[in-house]
Simulated assay, not measured.
Amino acid sequence: MKNGTEKASTAREGRDRNRSGDSRSRREFLRGLALGAAAAMFATFPAPRYASAEEKGGSKVLIVYFSHSGNTRRLAELIHERTGGRMAELRTVTPYPQEYDAVVEMAKKEQKSNARPPLAAPVSIPAEARTIFIGYPNWWGTFPMPVFTFLETHDLGDRTVIPFCTHEGSRFGRSERDLRRLCPRARILKGFEVRGSRVGQARGDVETWLREIGMVNAG
């Protein structure tokens, strides 16, 4: 049986480990936001071919995404160029702050409270949309909470659902597991993840991935 000194030492060690893990998560989240802002400043993309893409995918493809720094938006545009369909951005009634420490703390607080931030505008899902891409940055190991808001207020049924994610080292985290839990009847295909700082060089990888999952012809 441990004496009082040993118990206190064990408790301190546990607190130190928790603080260390939380600090690492916070640094990674903060690094992702910083690199995302830099990438948004310097990455260049040809103008998306929205007109031809719409004709190509029609209303059978819907690309829903949440983006803070702009990296996930750019990734959504790359996907849209090849698959067509319609794009829908998730925006919250209360915008997230641009200052890094502020958005880090806000995102962490929302996750701890299991918040569901209201969306500024509804996203309609056409009945004929059979394939839905879901895009997001990895915040604290999973979706930003507005993505939970969307998924819990829309029944995606047995549609094909495809995740795509930007991050700075944590890849999908547990977001794929959360997606399967929230869309239990959906056919979930292999997703795509890329560091936010590399979105500008991801066109070829996006093309390869879309071919692998059968979303564009090999032609």
Rank of each mutant, 00 (worst) to 15 (best):
R15F: 10
R185V: 01
A37R: 13
P97T: 05
I213P: 05
V104Q: 05
I213R: 10
Q98I: 05
F66K: 00
M106R: 14
A186G: 11
R24Q: 13
V161C: 06
S20A: 15
R180A: 11
D205H: 09
S170Y: 07
G36A: 01
Q111N: 06
E81S: 04
L156W: 00
G196R: 01
G85E: 05
A37N: 10
L151S: 12
G14D: 11
T5W: 09
F66M: 00
G36L: 07
T208H: 02
R195N: 09
G32S: 10
T94K: 03
V147Y: 02
S170P: 01
R159A: 12
V104T: 07
L78E: 14
V199N: 02
K109G: 08
P163D: 08
I63R: 02
L156F: 03
P48E: 04
L75K: 03
R17W: 06
E13T: 04
T72I: 11
R195W: 00
N217S: 14
G57F: 01
E99Q: 09
R31K: 07
I125P: 09
K7D: 11
D178C: 13
G85N: 11
A107S: 15
A43R: 11
R180G: 12
G21N: 14
A202N: 02
E110V: 04
N138K: 00
A88G: 10
E77H: 09
I63Y: 04
F143R: 02
